[in-house]
Design a protein around this nucleic acid. Structure first.
Length: 470
DNA sequence: CACTGTTTATTTGCCA
DNA sequence: TGGCAAATAAACAGTG
């Protein structure tokens, strides 16, 4: 008996104490019984260094106009495809040939700026160049920890189930819908190994399987301390599953008629594969004219590096010899009911916008109040933060976000520790809770598109100053 | 049986 | 070159 619909994933009252007050309905709606926390962040020195988290903190606090405007400046409307169809599957391009990469190309300067944020964006390609929600072939440049945290943030719950994490990732990153499901193993591995993730055992009276996960607030302050390390993400990785598809199609001689048209090197490639390849080459610049030096300076890593994975090397001589092929490549992760429950996780985030903002170094985080953008009339509401298009000297980096730890937040289990670091792990503003239905995360009614549009209507002043309402 | 969670091992890439 | 972080793979146990 579900009382919450997917259309209203973050209903009023979903924020706060529900986690402790579990109703029967809420029990059934195990993934919706949680308050919105997911806000603590971690930086584990021994196991993980979640630099990304800090960056997200900074970023999240500044989501709005600046980022949007910059993104528009740099990439037009290219951005992470969280504004893709609400039903990823329905809009899943991989069912056919995969979505081409967005055509607009960032400027060299834009790339250069991207490279300045190695931890996240200098990993091979410009995130803005790829619509990860629809692109099945380019692996998102986000670490698993990042993805988990994204999912947690998107859920706006204090805790989230593994299946929810899966679902959110697959909903928002098409790559993982068609990738070998071993990524789920990595997710689990990350949850278990990463100290910043805390397992919340399921209550005895709570039906369902597995526990919940949340972010350990213990690391939030350490994160805020600024200590972090960087790690470059691996180069662009092509979805192995799709690669397998291509291989199969590339050798159709044994299966069906050869399609000479467009086939090269004697290979028979069906139109689908041809288009797939062509699109990828176009998107990645993987053509015969590719210049390593150019790649070094701009599209470094964009070259479709199909590096032999460690596991593959091992597999060659040993253990899993073929079992992988038997795995499902993209089967529903959840039951219909779970799908329904998880609907809310289909958040419309624009992480790229956040990243974009960060790499401009125009953001400051004076506090740790989790934020997330909410459009409200002509002003931007960043989860309680009122963003007014205040003029500022052009070119200045006065994108200021004043936040304040929400000490009085009574949300469940780590109320006093949370809300410190992760601006992107937000807790709904008390006064905004009633508008949770308008939260851009709550429904497709308000998404990043609207944010961008609003940015346009507001002139997209990159110098927008943000001050909190608190 | 499938899913969840833990643990171990290995590889890769970055940085000092 | 070694240390570290992240990714990847897999074995294994627990649970519904």
């Amino acid at each position: 008996m579900l009382t919450l619909s997917c259309a209203d994933p973050w209903p009023e009252g979903s924020v706060g104490l529900e986690e402790e007050v579990v109703t029967a309905a809420a029990q059934a709606e195990e993934r919706d019984t949680n308050s919105s926390i997911c806000s603590s962040v971690n930086l584990d020195d021994s196991l993980t260094s979640l630099q990304w988290l800090q960056e997200f903190s900074i970023l999240g606090a500044s989501v709005p106009q600046q980022a949007l405007h910059l993104q528009q400046q740099l990439f037009g409307h290219q951005r992470l495809g969280f504004d893709a169809p609400a039903s990823p599957v329905a809009g899943d391009p991989a069912s056919s040939i995969g979505m081409p990469l967005t055509p607009g190309k960032p400027t060299a300067a834009a790339y250069s700026r991207m490279q300045s944020l190695p931890g996240i964006v200098a990993h091979g390609h410009c995130p803005d160049e790829v619509d990860y929600k629809t692109n099945t072939r380019i692996k998102p440049p986000y670490s698993y920890a990042t993805l988990i945290c994204m999912a947690m943030q998107a859920s706006k719950k204090s805790k989230i189930t593994l299946s929810c994490i899966y679902q959110w990732i697959t909903d928002n990153f098409c790559y993982y819908r068609h990738a070998d499901p071993t990524w789920q193993n990595s997710i689990r591995h990350n949850l278990s190994l990463n100290k910043c993730f805390i397992k919340v055992p399921r209550q005895k009276d709570e039906p369902g399987k597995g526990g919940f996960w949340k972010i350990d607030p213990q690391y939030a302050e350490r994160l805020l301390s600024g200590a972090y390390k960087k790690r470059r993400m691996p180069p662009v990785q092509i979805n192995p599953a799709l690669q397998n598809r291509l291989r199969i199609n590339v050798h159709p001689q044994t299966r069906g008629p050869c399609i000479p048209a467009g086939s090269q090197s004697g290979l028979c490639i069906n139109p689908e594969s041809q288009q797939l390849l062509q699109e990828f080459e176009e998107a990645t610049g993987a053509d015969q004219n590719w210049d390593p030096h150019m790649a070094e300076g701009t599209m470094l890593g964009s070259w479709p590096v199909v590096r032999g994975r460690s596991g593959h090397k091992r597999k060659l001589g040993s253990r899993n010899g073929g079992t992988k092929a038997l795995r499902r490549s993209s089967s529903p992760l959840l039951s219909a009911e779970e799908q329904k429950e998880i609907g809310p996780l289909k958040g419309d985030f624009d992480w790229d916008a956040l990243l974009d903002s960060a790499l401009n170094g125009e953001l400051s985080l004076d506090g740790g109040e989790p934020l997330s953008p909410i459009i409200k009339d002509e002003d931007l509401m960043v989860r309680g933060t009122h963003i007014s298009p205040i003029e500022a000297p052009p070119g200045t980096a006065d994108f200021h976000v004043l936040v304040e730890t929400q000490r009085n937040n009574e949300v469940s289990d780590f109320d006093e520790e949370t809300f410190l670091a992760t601006a992107f792990l937000e807790t709904p503003w008390p006064e905004e809770e009633e508008q949770s239905s308008n939260d851009f995360l709550c429904s497709s009614s308000v998404n990043l598109d609207q944010l961008f549009d609003l940015g346009d209507s507001l002139g997209g002043d990159p110098n927008t100053r943000i001050d909190t309402l608190l």
